[in-house]
């Protein structure tokens, strides 16, 4: 038997759902249940209607608009049916294609980096006995900075001619690098800034997760003679998996929506090196005022995001089932 086996059994026990005792319902139970369900629906209906009005209807409107071309004349709009043309054009849109690829790369590397850094920082912070509050405050500082200020800070730091980063690297003999202006480094620079900005989000969720883990499992692992790495691999990570998945899902959705950092730092360039989906949508919908086509692009982005989330949660489900 492996030394951590009993700890793993504890983990399984902690995660296992308590089994419920099921008895046969009577007719009175059924009637009471029906009343309760009706009452529940009645009380919920105002909120549901509000949700419908605020969320579903705008989405339906977006979906409907995506089948039209909108133009203006004499101060009035006119909608011309476009069928599926707006959706067909998406495939040939250079910026949209580049946006998908870059968004996927951005999401993978930025979220991966944030998860890793956030988890390591949370682990370190959990292990610190004194000054935890101070560390925690320092680590969460970047998330408190508004996006526009983050853009200003890093635009200045990474400036080719006057930036602090190039001035610092010049001191140790390196040539100046055009961090935001070279196709080789621009996307990596934006990802780095995003990691800097959003790692505290992961850190906070992971820290909360780590602090809520039951200590008896760790005590069992210690009794079993588990090393620090084994504790991490067989106790901490499995118990943290729900928190990790939720954090990942949150960050993934937010990473897919990235806009401000690209808008402020690179404007999608050079070329299409940092073109992301949201920025393409901004260009087509707002700057170029292509309402119908922009709506089609919006629908496509929402669809892709839902698909991705479904995949993430399905993966979580499979992992849970496998364990």
């Amino acid at each position: 038997m492996k030394p951590i086996a009993s700890a793993a059994a504890h983990v399984a026990a902690v995660e296992a759902e308590p089994s419920a005792t099921v008895s046969q319902p009577t007719a009175a139970d059924f009637a009471r249940g029906l009343d309760e369900r009706l009452w529940r629906w009645l009380t919920l209906s105002p909120a549901l209607l509000l949700l419908l009005a605020l969320s579903v209807l705008p989405l339906l409107n977006l979906f409907a608009t995506s089948f039209f071309t909108v133009s203006w004349s004499g101060g009035h709009s006119s909608f011309t049916a476009a069928g599926l043309n707006n959706y067909r054009e998406l495939a040939g849109d250079t910026l949209f294609r580049a946006g998908i690829l870059n968004t996927v790369l951005f999401a993978l590397f930025a979220v991966g980096g944030q998860m890793l850094c956030g988890f390591v920082l949370a682990l370190l912070c959990t292990g610190v006995a004194r000054g935890r509050l101070l560390y925690r405050t320092i680590f969460i500082l970047p998330i408190l900075v508004p996006g526009i200020v983050v853009g200003a800070i890093w635009k200045l730091l990474l400036n080719y001619d006057f930036g602090l980063v190039n001035q610092a690297t010049a001191l140790i003999g390196f040539d100046a690098v055009n961090w935001l202006g070279s196709a080789n480094t621009a996307l990596a620079s934006v990802i780095f800034v995003d990691i800097w900005h959003w790692t505290p989000f992961c850190f906070l969720l992971f820290l909360a997760g780590l602090q809520s883990l039951p200590q008896d499992v760790y005590e069992a692992a210690k009794i079993d003679g588990a090393s620090g790495w084994q504790e991490l691999a067989y106790v901490t990570l499995p118990m943290m998996l729900p928190t990790i998945m939720v954090t990942f899902a949150f960050r993934l959705v937010l990473a897919f929506k990235v806009f401000d950092e690209v808008y402020l730092l690179t404007g999608g360039g050079p070329g299409t090196a940092t073109q992301v989906m949201s920025f393409t949508l901004y260009q087509r919908f707002f700057r170029e005022d292509q309402t119908g086509y922009g709506s089609a692009m919006s629908v496509a982005i929402i669809f892709m995001t839902c698909l991705l989330l479904s995949a993430a949660f399905a993966a979580r489900g499979r992992m849970g089932a496998a364990r």
Binding site: Y160, N178, L180, G181, S182, G267, G269, P270
Partner: peptide, 8 residues
């Protein structure tokens, strides 16, 4: 400028 492509 060596980085013309990135200058606004």
């Amino acid at each position: 400028h060596p980085q013309t492509a990135s200058l606004d």
